[in-house]
Simulated scan of single mutants.
Amino acid sequence: MTSDSEDPNDDVQYHLEVGEDDVADSVLLPGNPERVEKVVDYWDDHDIVAEHREYRTATGNHDGTPISVTSTGIGGPSAAIALEELARVGADSFIRVGSCGAIQEEASIGDLVITTGAVRQEGTSKEYVREDYPASADHRIVSALVAAAEELGYDYHLGVTCSTDSFYAGQSRPGFEDFEASGSDERIAALQEAGVLNFEMEAATILTLANLYGLRAGAVCTVYANRVTGEFRTEGERKAAKCASLAVSYLAEMDAAVEEADADGWHAGLSIDR
Rank of each mutant, 00 (worst) to 15 (best):
S125V: 10
A87L: 07
E127F: 02
A135F: 13
E150D: 15
I103E: 01
T115W: 01
A137D: 04
F176L: 07
A149K: 01
D92C: 05
K126E: 13
A149G: 12
V160K: 06
A137K: 03
A147I: 09
H157C: 09
V113R: 01
V146H: 02
D132T: 15
E105H: 10
A80G: 15
D165L: 05
S136R: 12
E85M: 13
R130G: 11
V119K: 02
P174A: 09
D111K: 00
A79N: 10
K126T: 08
G90E: 08
A102C: 10
E85L: 13
S172I: 10
I114G: 01
E84L: 08
I141L: 15
A149N: 05
D155E: 15
V146E: 10
C100Y: 06
V89I: 13
E177K: 07
L158S: 07
V97P: 05
D132Q: 13
C100G: 06
F176R: 03
S125K: 01
Y168F: 14
V89W: 11
A144Q: 06
G123V: 03
A169R: 05
A87S: 15
T115S: 04
E127D: 12
D132V: 15
A118I: 02
G98C: 10
I114K: 00
I95G: 06
V113G: 00
F176I: 08
E127C: 06
I103P: 02
E131A: 15
D155G: 13
F167H: 05
H139P: 12
Y154N: 06
S166M: 08
Y133I: 12
C100N: 11
Q171S: 09
I109C: 03
G170S: 10
Y128R: 07
G98R: 06
A79R: 03
F94A: 04
S99E: 08
E131W: 10
D178M: 06
I114N: 02
D111G: 01
R130I: 15
E105C: 10
R130D: 15
E177F: 06
S108V: 07
V119S: 03
E177R: 11
S166E: 08
V97D: 05
S93H: 14
A87F: 11
S78K: 06
A147C: 02
G123W: 07
D111N: 08
G159T: 09
I103S: 03
E106A: 12
V89T: 14
S108A: 14
G175N: 05
Y128D: 07
